[in-house]
């Protein structure tokens, strides 16, 4: 096997850690499949939202009346930057096995991610208290909270996972399992950012534009 051979798609240890790279083949492929299954879940929630945001208004508010685009824009930036920061954590691991560097980048990723979740919770708070738009108000709002809430829940569990990975890096060092876990978390984190593209486009932007 040549060092550059790709054993699995996406983020790779090829070239710097042949042993880890070989071990990665099965687990990373498995994790990709998990992500795809998760993506189908999001797709179904999107489809439900697409119908309910139009057909399920009932006596509740319209999307354009409750969404705050500025907040959505800031959230988008936060998540994008945190995704970017995670990329640098992976590079620090892959090329230098630099514990301090990885932990600093992870901390930055985590803070940005936590800020994202906090802002989203604040959005919910504003919607419920100022716009009388809790999830119980209409089918549209039920679908909205489920879709964005599932995403926020994923981000939050990613944060917990990140905290545990930081401990593992500090305690166990860069053993092969730790490296592979961090790579899977990276895939998870980047994929959540991809899902968010769908949310800010079809939920927020199109919701306000239509």
């Amino acid at each position: 096997m040549s060092l550059s051979e790709r054993l699995h798609p996406g983020l790779n240890l090829a070239g710097t850690d042949p042993e880890g790279h070989e071990a990665a083949e099965e687990v990373l492929f498995g994790f990709w499949i998990f992500l795809m299954s998760d993506l189908v879940l999001f797709a179904v929630l999107f489809a439900t939202y697409a119908a309910m945001s139009v057909q399920g208004i009932a006596d509740g508010p319209l999307p354009a009346e409750v969404f705050d685009l500025t907040a959505a824009f800031v959230e988008t930036l936060l998540l994008l930057l945190s995704s970017f920061a995670f990329g640098f954590a992976i590079l620090a691991m892959k090329y230098r096995e630099d514990r301090r560097g990885v932990l600093v980048w992870l901390l930055l990723t985590g803070v940005l991610g936590a800020a994202f979740v906090a802002m989203e919770l604040h959005d919910y708070y504003v919607m419920i208290t100022q716009h009388a738009a809790p999830p119980q108000a209409s089918g549209f709002l039920s679908a909205y909270y489920l879709l964005t809430g599932t995403h926020a829940l994923h981000v939050s569990s990613g944060l917990v996972w990140m905290a545990i990975m930081s401990i593992q890096i500090a305690v166990l060092g860069f053993t092969a399992p730790v490296k592979l876990r961090l790579m899977r978390l990276a895939l998870f984190w980047h994929m959540l950012d991809v899902v968010w593209i769908g949310i800010f486009t079809f939920v927020y932007l199109y919701g306000v534009a239509s």
Binding site: H8, G10, W32, G87, H190
Partner: peptide, 18 residues
């Protein structure tokens, strides 16, 4: 995102998996 963050690469990736 898929190309630059997730490093999906059509040329060099393992085809069956992809």
């Amino acid at each position: 995102h898929l190309r630059y963050f997730l490093h999906i690469d059509l040329q060099r990736s393992h085809r069956d998996d992809l």
